[in-house]
């Protein structure tokens, strides 16, 4: 009977605000599930780590030898590799999180009916949303840690502020995962995923990952400044080069809002899709 008592334990206070028991306070069991499953899919995880390192080698060392230096966020010149590395860090946090929260979640939602199975237990849509977004965040965090280590070894971290790039990368991953999962809940077929590529790839290429915002005319600059990856890159570049200013808090706020909107929409949509 003790086992059952545990099973029916009440959710924390704030969750009672949500309708019809949509949160059992047990989203970490989804992390356990993902961790167990990932013991067989580790090559996919390793490849996600390698990708930004390849870009850093090709662009930073290869192209960088032609470019030389660029003015850093505080105006001092830094090597091209040191300039794009924080951009790649931000992009890898985005890519890992978006991939996990879109393709993987869609597969579980439509083909495995995994969430239907979970909802037959005390777990609710909020547990699922938080658990899946949490896993995407852990994965993004793993990539960020790996890439920051590579940056450290390559001498591309020039400030102790760089330590804060890791929690910042976690927040960025969380926000992208939350929005990605929310977007996935609206997708009807695999064709819709072309839209994900259409959103992510141009952001990766054009949101100041590889060159400064100043190359654009002002109207295009405003457009780029709206993109989430731009704010992630600014955040990372400020921290890894030590150009810390209050404006970074604005970028942080952008991701806090994005994460909150993502979680709420994802949980609501899961509820609408699965609890009909």
């Amino acid at each position: 009977m003790t086992a059952l008592d545990t099973a029916t334990r009440a959710a924390p206070g704030w969750a009672r605000l949500l309708p019809g028991g949509s949160y059992a306070g047990r989203s970490r069991m989804l992390l356990l599930r993902s961790a167990t499953a990932s013991r067989r899919t580790w090559p996919a995880i390793v490849s996600g780590f390698a990708e930004p390192v390849f870009y850093l080698l090709a662009m930073g060392s290869g192209l960088g030898s032609l470019v030389g230096t660029l003015p850093g966020p505080d105006g001092r010149p830094i090597s091209y590799a040191a300039w794009i590395a924080p951009g790649l860090l931000a992009a890898s946090a985005m890519n890992g999180a978006v991939f996990d929260a879109t393709f993987n979640v869609f597969f579980k939602l439509k083909y495995n009916r995994l969430y239907d199975a979970m909802l037959a237990t005390p777990l609710g849509p909020v547990d699922i949303a938080l658990g899946e977004i949490g896993w995407a965040l852990l994965r993004g965090g793993l990539y960020a840690t790996g890439f920051l280590s590579v940056m450290a070894v390559a001498g591309l971290l020039t400030s102790p502020w760089a330590l804060l790039a890791l929690p910042a990368a976690l927040l960025v991953a969380f926000a992208f995962a939350a929005i990605g999962m929310a977007a996935t809940s609206f997708m009807r077929s695999w064709q819709d995923f072309d839209l994900v590529t259409l959103a992510v790839l141009p952001m990766f290429l054009f949101a100041t990952t590889f060159y400064p915002l100043g190359v654009y005319p002002r109207p295009l600059q405003i457009l780029v400044e709206c993109l989430p990856l731009f704010h992630a890159v600014e955040l990372m570049r400020g921290l890894t080069t030590g150009a810390v200013h209050l404006g970074l808090l604005g970028h942080l706020a952008y991701f806090l809002v994005m994460a909150a909107v993502g979680v709420v929409v994802a949980a609501r949509r899961l509820e609408a899709l699965l609890l009909r």
Binding site: T8, A11, G20, L114, A120, T121
Partner: peptide, 25 residues
């Protein structure tokens, strides 16, 4: 069920029409 869904589900066993086993496990 509207009010106590999770508490009820904690004591139910459900075999759905279509198997939804976890194929990654």
């Amino acid at each position: 069920p509207d009010r106590d869904g999770p508490r009820i589900r904690a004591r139910l066993g459900v075999v759905p029409q279509l198997d939804n086993l976890d194929t990654e496990l």
